[in-house]
């Protein structure tokens, strides 16, 4: 074998011989890093729109009362609206079982180690729900005030819960999440008389500093108090979602999340 007569060249290595001079070149791209997720989210949203379904992404820290809010909401709207729930948790079917106990279809997504839901997971769950028989789909995201804010799921609106057992400066500490909120619900307000260090006005000031005009409404799911503004908001948005779609209605309802 030598380097002069060509006896070292085989069909498997001959392409190395004809390789042009190596050079680097730069391609301009300007694409969103989550382009894949966002395309899937747009597909999900089109799916909701085609069925006249309102899709809401419920986000909060763990234990802020997302499932309790859903239980109270289902109890209050049972006779007027058809509700389905997609539950996101790292493990267990517990939350979906709580929702099913209310007589409402629930699909549990267990993310394993992932700290958020993404549009592909939601798409998988969507196909287990008969959207023709549903008015509102609640997507209860993994309890986390950081990661879920970066992933569009195809929802129409983001609802963020802040419980009074957390700090009233949470909007200042987690600005990405609270800036994306279309509605903020102050939960567990029945506990306010026992807490001297949570000031609802301070929570609202922190939210307004994020230049977010979203309503902030106090309520208690446990005592079923303060629910009316929230229920009316749901009725109004569900009506809008189910109205025959004029062209571009999807744009008007689209979430503000992730439109970098």
């Amino acid at each position: 074998m030598c380097n002069t007569c060509g006896c070292t060249i085989t069909p498997a290595n001959q392409y190395l011989l004809y390789r042009p001079v190596e050079q680097q070149h730069t391609l301009s791209v300007l694409n969103h890093l989550l382009a894949e997720n966002n395309a899937q989210a747009a597909h999900n949203r089109a799916h909701f729109d085609a069925h006249g379904v309102l899709a809401l992404n419920l986000m909060s820290s763990p234990g802020a009362g997302k499932t309790a809010l859903l239980e109270a909401t289902i109890a209050a709207l049972r006779d007027e609206m058809r509700i389905a729930v997609i539950e996101g948790d790292l493990e267990t079917e517990n939350d979906a079982e709580r929702i099913r106990a209310q007589g409402v279809p629930a699909v549990q997504i267990t993310t394993g180690t992932a700290c958020h839901l993404d549009a592909h997971m939601v798409h998988g769950a969507l196909h287990q729900i008969d959207l023709d028989r549903i008015d509102i789909v609640f997507i209860e995201n993994v309890g986390n005030l950081v990661c879920p804010a970066s992933f569009d799921l195809g929802q129409h609106r983001n609802v963020v819960l802040l419980s009074v057992t957390e700090g009233d400066d949470k909007p200042a500490k987690y600005p990405v999440m609270f800036r994306a909120a279309d509605l903020v619900l102050l939960t567990k307000t029945d506990l306010l008389p026992h807490l001297d260090d949570f000031d609802p006005a301070q929570a609202e000031r922190c939210l307004r500093r994020l230049a977010n005009p979203a309503p902030l409404w106090p309520l208690s799911s446990k005592k079923m108090t303060g629910l009316e503004p929230w229920l009316n908001w749901l009725r109004g948005h569900a009506r809008k979602a189910s109205a025959p779609a004029p062209a571009h209605s999807g744009v008007e309802l689209s979430s503000t999340l992730n439109h970098a």
């Binding site: 730069t26 791209v29 300007l30």
Partner: peptide
């Protein structure tokens, strides 16, 4: 409080530099 964000939420792939190519 009525402001529009004009920069600050970017999450973009600007460019990639590739080695070789064309075959």
């Amino acid at each position: 409080g009525h402001t529009q964000l004009i920069s600050g939420n970017e999450m973009q792939l600007v460019s990639v530099e590739l080695l070789g190519g064309g075959h």
